[in-house]
């Protein structure tokens, strides 16, 4: 039985190598992205390619809420010291809301339904902090 199994594996060596390579590459990238942190505390809120707002989370002393206009509805964003989240959104999947509070420099929050993205960038462009 073992020899039959090894025989089968030998016939599909190329496939195993291809899938194994993709698996290894994606695991590596996933681990790097999970632990990678941008040192900036500035959250950039964009609607498609247009920057709506930049918020310096290190200067937020109290929790505050504001709305930005998306493609289909308004998106409520909450910020507090070093954290940001999408608090309320009318999108069907609610994945962006379920992400919860995201710490400065961590992963982006994307709402593809409304075209809203929140991410951290070291290159804040020196623009004035709005909002």
């Amino acid at each position: 039985m073992a020899s039959k199994f090894l025989d089968k594996l030998r016939r599909h060596v190329v496939e195993i190598i291809i899938v194994g390579s993709i698996l290894a590459a994606s695991i590596t990238l996933a681990v790097v992205l999970s632990f990678f942190r941008v040192s900036s505390s500035i959250a950039i809120i964009k609607h498609h390619n247009e920057t709506i707002m930049k918020v310096d989370l290190s200067k937020e002393n109290e929790e505050r809420h504001f709305q930005v206009k998306g493609d289909f509805s308004f998106v409520t964003i909450a910020v507090k010291k070093d954290y940001i989240c999408i608090e309320h959104n009318d999108c069907p999947s609610q994945y962006c809301v379920n992400e919860g509070w995201v710490k400065s420099g961590e992963k982006p929050i994307i709402c593809a339904y409304n075209g809203i993205s929140i991410y951290f960038s070291e290159d804040s462009g020196g623009s004035a902090i709005l909002g």
């Binding site: 990238l29 982006p108 994307i110 075209g115 993205s117």
Partner: peptide, 12 residues
Amino acid sequence: YMENGAIFYYLP
């Protein structure tokens, strides 16, 4: 659609 590359974070 989003016109920015942040979505690629989820690709891996």
